[in-house]
């Protein structure tokens, strides 16, 4: 039964991009068409299930186009895209799941009992992330960072998982999304540093060793200060690229495997790529959790590092 479900899953995945490609510019006969890039990149339309046979399995819905907003010299096109829709869905799912769990807890807290089922699972995840990942890394008095890190975790997790659902798309496979999350993390880390170190925060920007003679101190400061500053930006940069690349790579592999069927043009060969793609999908499922975890873990570690850094 499970095997059948995953097969159907993989198949729906396989057909969606084809419908997509066909819906677009009809490719010249016999010429290779890139179905992977459109699938993993952002677009102005979303796919929804279609039950009309002539349309295939998916129907495209054009998202509204809004006039770009001008803020001073900056122009921002705020018209929603596929990934924005996915972000919204992920956020709503986060709210639904977590607030439902919180409600269940509040209900059970009255008689000092633990909730059962889903609420208990969410509680277990929240508590694990809080007690084993976030608090030990951000250091003492780090309770204030828990909601931020937990929000990061669940938001990224739901975004990742939505990419594995048929008709879904991985918002965390968009560099804009991961970059924004990383920038948020960057600001949280730096502000945490400022609050924890006070004036000492300057020492994390300007390298100024106290235990060296002035003759060495000068050049060292000149050399090391840029390194310190670059170090501040490489951390969120790495966060953004890691999440983006992980989320994109899995999808590329799955799509490439499925495309093998069409490359060889043989249905007889189909089972092999499908089995392989299913295996990759299972791996993707794991990676979805892993990358959300890694992002949260690293943000906690960065917060802890800057709060503990006494030069």
């Amino acid at each position: 039964m499970m095997k059948f479900a995953s097969l159907a899953f993989a198949l729906s995945f396989a057909f969606a991009p084809i419908a997509n490609a066909q819906g677009h510019a009809a490719p010249p006969a016999g010429q290779a068409v890139d179905i992977i890039t459109p699938h993993i990149s952002d677009s102005k339309h979303i796919e929804i299930p279609s039950f009309v046979l002539a349309e295939g399995l998916a129907r495209e819905i054009e998202l509204p186009h809004w006039a770009p907003v001008h803020i001073g010299s900056v122009t921002i096109d705020l018209s929603p895209t596929k990934h924005v829709v996915m972000l919204l869905i992920a956020a709503v799912l986060c709210l639904l799941v977590l607030i439902t769990a919180a409600r269940a807890q509040a209900r059970h807290a009255v008689n000092n009992g633990a909730p059962k089922g889903g609420a208990n699972a969410i509680e277990a995840v929240v508590l694990y992330m809080r007690n084993e990942v976030i608090l030990p890394n951000v250091g003492r008095h780090g309770e204030g960072f828990v909601p931020f890190c937990l929000t990061l975790f669940f938001f990224i997790l739901f975004c990742n998982l939505l990419g594995l659902v048929p008709y879904g798309s991985t918002a965390t496979g968009n560099i804009a999304v991961t970059a924004t999350l990383a920038i948020c993390a960057f600001f949280v880390v730096e502000i945490a540093g400022m609050r924890a170190l006070g004036k000492g925060y300057i020492a994390t920007v300007v390298y100024w060793p106290h235990d060296m003679p002035l003759a060495i101190k000068g050049p060292m400061t000149l050399i090391m200060t840029p390194v310190e500053i670059i170090g501040k930006f490489t951390k969120p940069f790495a966060l953004a690229i890691r999440l983006f690349a992980n989320m994109t790579a899995g999808h590329v592999v799955v799509l490439a495997l499925i495309s093998l069927i069409f490359t060889f043009g043989s249905y007889l060969l189909a089972p092999v790529p499908i089995v392989a793609a299913t295996a990759i999908m299972v791996l993707e499922l794991f990676v979805a959790f892993l990358q959300a975890f890694v992002f949260t873990l690293l943000v906690s570690v960065f917060i802890g590092q800057i709060r503990e850094s006494h030069h």
Partner: peptide
Amino acid sequence: PNTGVMAWTLVIFVVLFLLLS
């Protein structure tokens, strides 16, 4: 990166953070 998506992400994330916490 698309700045529109970045702006959306920021808004969604901040609102989600406030509501969830």
